[in-house]
Design a binder for these strands. Structure first.
Lengths: 344, 344
DNA sequence: TTGTAAGCGTTATCAT
DNA sequence: ATGATAACGCTTACAA
């Protein structure tokens, strides 16, 4: 257990002062000859500056990533891409998960401050509004990804175009002839929940189809809320029962699908299904699912660009709202409604 | 953007010296009355010690988590649990992914040192043996999880009992009457690859079934190696073709299953299939898959316990090998071989 | 261009 | 039990 070389060792080895070495490390002006000597010494000794010492001076090449749940494949893949993008830019990622619990989220924010991270990318639970804004007051750059908080109008947001995505899924079903379309999404207290349901309703309205509150389910992300919603929807009297279903949040599709299978629902004959987010397995189930595919790599790239841009102060003031397009991928889980059952 | 209070502010507010405050923060001896004043001042000012300053003095409540690929649901869930366990113990996790690339892994190790993390939990690619051991020489406690590196005999390892798990899957198929059983697993350069294939072979040997090299496929984790292996296995002359298949690594099951579906293989009539690791979707596909379920929460808990135990020096010297039991879950993808085709 | 020296916020080592 | 004060490794004015 030998000790790592410090900047002083390098200075000594190169026969210069520490400030020169520091300038070589950062973008200071150094004579070419001197620089070479220093670089050589650094390589020789295998010197690497310690992050802690740098942070103490305000520098910061670490970002916090606050995700709801790595068990959700959408977040997992998002984390993968974000870590990847960050690495390419030489910044490290401190990962935290909230399990959708505002309490944990609050704790998380506190420790993120201790770490004095320069920026944070987060999928907020919706609570802790004061804490988030205090984080910003303390100079931490904040970017919300996937979700946002309306009250924090001054925060950058990167997401898919939620309304349009939900609308296009709805339009697809309408185009197939469906009139009774149900939607399961996140709670109406979340941005994705409201936006996606709004998109669904606008598509309905555009087609002149009255919206039915019984078919709209804004339910929690965790637990078996999806399954319960499915059960409730299929328990409706035949005439009111939906012939199409949009599961508008990745968090709910697994339990929703499980419920459909358990109930022995014949997809798409009895029920057409479209789910949000294209997991690797959506094409492995039978029938393969029609999905809204989110461009996760884009979400990741933009989020990282944004935080780093802010951290380096090379972005104009004023919040940035980046919305990327999601893609509808039609597979076999959606078809025209069964004429016998669809006619009331 | 106000500045956060420092330990000096607290000292002033409480009318004591900084060392007293520091002792209150850690486990120093302080008079009850004084301690109360300090605690009050801390709460009052909302003081939180800065991690960077602490690290500079050797302290370290951060661990590095080096995973191969968050796109693999096994690793994603492992990350989720590890972050969870760490949080419960007040330590943060710096996440890094290697994408199975030794180059990236090498970089990763370097930055982990800059961060001066106290410990690392990793799923090594198999390379960088010198780098790993240098990390240890520098005093960083290292725990391998899921995989290990034989050459690093002095490193703690937490994993499932790989041999036994593969053996029990094999025995299950043998018990159903299969004689020609194929196995797809990680490369033979990886610990999981060799161990699982060894388990498979020992089960075969115990049943008096000769092992056939053509049925053993140690292939890379990334890419479509699983699919290719499946194609190759099913391209064998009918007499040599397997009636049972064990996909012994989560990384390979998705592409393997996709290939099976694309080829229109009738499971389990034409081929019985058992896959490693129980993803949420393994019961959603048809037929639901028989799986080896890894106790991910146990792997996470033990890993975190181990690194922290080492970091706090409250563990006896000598490497620790913790193996937890995996569970075989029988579902519908495995059955007795089709009598017509199984008889050569 | 280069060197000197003063922080950054905490812990640790001494005295008191 | 408490208080000065010197590290810890780096960045950054300020001088030279």
């Amino acid at each position: 257990m030998k000790k790592a070389p410090t900047i002083r060792d390098v200075a000594a080895a190169a026969g210069v002062s520490v400030s020169v070495v520091s300038r070589v490390l950062n973008e200071g002006s150094v004579a070419v000859a001197t620089r070479e000597k220093v670089v050589a010494a650094i390589a020789e000794l295998g010197f690497r500056p310690r992050a802690a010492a740098r942070e103490l001076n305000g520098a910061n090449l670490t970002i916090g990533l606050v995700l709801a749940d790595l068990t959700n494949p959408f977040f997992a893949r998002l984390a993968d891409r974000i870590v990847w993008e960050a690495r390419g830019r030489g910044v490290q990622v401190v990962l935290m998960t909230t399990q959708e619990d505002p309490h944990i989220e609050a704790e998380t924010l506190a420790t993120l401050l201790d770490r004095s991270v320069g920026g944070v990318i987060a999928t907020p639970t919706g609570g802790n509004i004061d804490k988030w804004s205090r984080l910003q007051d303390l100079g931490v750059d904040l970017v919300f990804v996937d979700r946002s908080i309306a009250a924090l109008e001054n925060t950058d947001v990167v997401s898919i175009h939620n309304e349009a995505s939900a609308a296009s899924a709805t339009e697809h079903l309408i185009g197939l002839g469906h009139r009774r379309i149900a939607v399961i999404s996140g709670p109406l207290t979340t941005s994705t929940g409201t936006a996606r349901i709004a998109g669904y309703e606008s598509a309905l309205a555009a087609a002149g189809i009255p919206s039915d509150a019984a078919l709209i389910r804004g339910v929690p992300f965790r637990g078996d809320a999806g399954a319960d919603a499915v059960a409730a929807l299929l328990a409706l009297p035949l005439a009111e029962r939906p012939t199409g279903l949009i599961v508008a949040n990745t968090a709910q599709v697994q339990s929703s699908m499980r419920q459909l299978y358990q109930m022995g629902i014949d997809i798409p004959r009895e029920l057409s299904v479209i789910v949000f987010d294209d997991n690797p397995w959506t094409e492995l189930v039978s029938p393969p699912l029609s999905v809204i595919r989110q461009p996760i790599d884009m979400l990741a790239r933009h989020s990282v660009d944004l935080v780093l841009g802010r951290m380096q102060g090379r972005l104009p003031v004023g919040p940035r709202f980046i919305e990327v397009q999601a893609e509808f991928v039609s597979r076999s889980s959606s078809a025209a409604p069964n004429p016998v059952e669809s006619h009331v």
